[in-house]
Computed example of a mutant assay.
Amino acid sequence: MPVHKDESGNRYVQAEAEVPGTPEEVWEAIATGPGITSWFVPSQVDGRVGGEVVCNFGPGMDSLSKITEWDPPRRFVADSRDGLGPDDPTVATEWIVEARDGGRCVVRVVHRWFMDGDAWDAQYEGHTHGWVSFFRVLRLYLAGFRGQSGAPVQVMGVAPEPRDAAWEAWTRPLGLYGAAVGQRVQTPADAPRLAGTVEWAGQPAWPEELLIRLDAPAPGIAHLVPHAMGGQVYLTMRLYLYGDDAPAAAAEAGTAWQAWLHEHFAPVAVPA
């Protein structure tokens, strides 16, 4: 998504998606801690002007922002810095919910920052591509598990580049390589249990991505995607499990999948 510039000189990028649900139901999913945790990453939200939003992307990787505008169930804005260096800009992230006919809404996220140059353009363009991916998870959550609190699992391994080779090395032993939308998939007996139907299987610009609606180890969603960075490929698996047994299933799955990834790929170093 291209970087734009508004009349005030702010640079901005945005992404949006149409999702099922009323504005109140969609707001619950994008503006509360339990809601965000159920389709994105473990999060906490103090829903008020001056309140904090904390999103945890892994050990030692918390993203902190402060709410500057709060207008449920339509819009909120939170300011943050990414902590990527002394000159990284303060970014205002705006979330907007717009009602549509037929019990649907459009969700839009806009990142705005002020800089004279384009030093951070690529970074925030990457953010919007990430949102497009997570919005697919949000859409599936609202379609099949709306209002349910999810028990999340986040695990990661590291493989050498290139990305496509790392993807094959990761997914082929799991019986997932080359899976197509609508296909029923199931991991083999020597891997942690995962079974369901493929809902998304990448696109021409990024074919290495899977979104699976799960029925095992519990009803839920699995999202698998590799990211090339710093000469390595980070293999990220996120599970969102629902139902009464979800917390226990998530704890067991997290331990099993992290052990499997560490056996087959390099463990991820935890920041000090």
Results as ranks from 00 to 15, higher is better:
V181D: 00
W167R: 02
A151M: 00
T187D: 00
L140H: 12
P192Y: 03
W113M: 04
F145M: 02
V198Q: 10
A143K: 14
Y141I: 10
F134S: 10
H129M: 08
D164V: 07
Q186D: 13
V185M: 08
G178V: 00
V107K: 03
A179G: 00
V153W: 05
V137R: 06
L194W: 04
V185W: 01
A122C: 05
V137I: 15
G157L: 00
Q123N: 14
T197K: 13
L142F: 05
V107M: 05
R139H: 13
R184N: 14
L138W: 00
P152F: 09
L174G: 02
G175W: 02
T197M: 15
P160Y: 00
Q123H: 15
A143E: 15
R100A: 15
H111L: 01
R139Y: 01
F135S: 02
V132M: 04
R139Q: 01
P188L: 01
L194G: 02
A159M: 01
Q183Y: 02
G178D: 05
L138F: 07
L142G: 11
H127S: 08
E125F: 09
R112C: 00
W95G: 05
W120K: 04
W113H: 05
R108N: 12
H127P: 03
V110I: 08
M115Q: 04
R184A: 14
Q186V: 06
A159H: 07
R104K: 15
V97N: 09
T187W: 07
I96S: 12
V137N: 10
T197Q: 12
I96P: 04
R184F: 14
G196C: 08
V97L: 11
F114S: 06
R112L: 04
V106P: 01
L174I: 06
T171N: 01
T197A: 13
A143G: 15
A191R: 11
V158A: 03
G175Q: 05
T171K: 03
Q186K: 13
T171Q: 06
E125I: 07
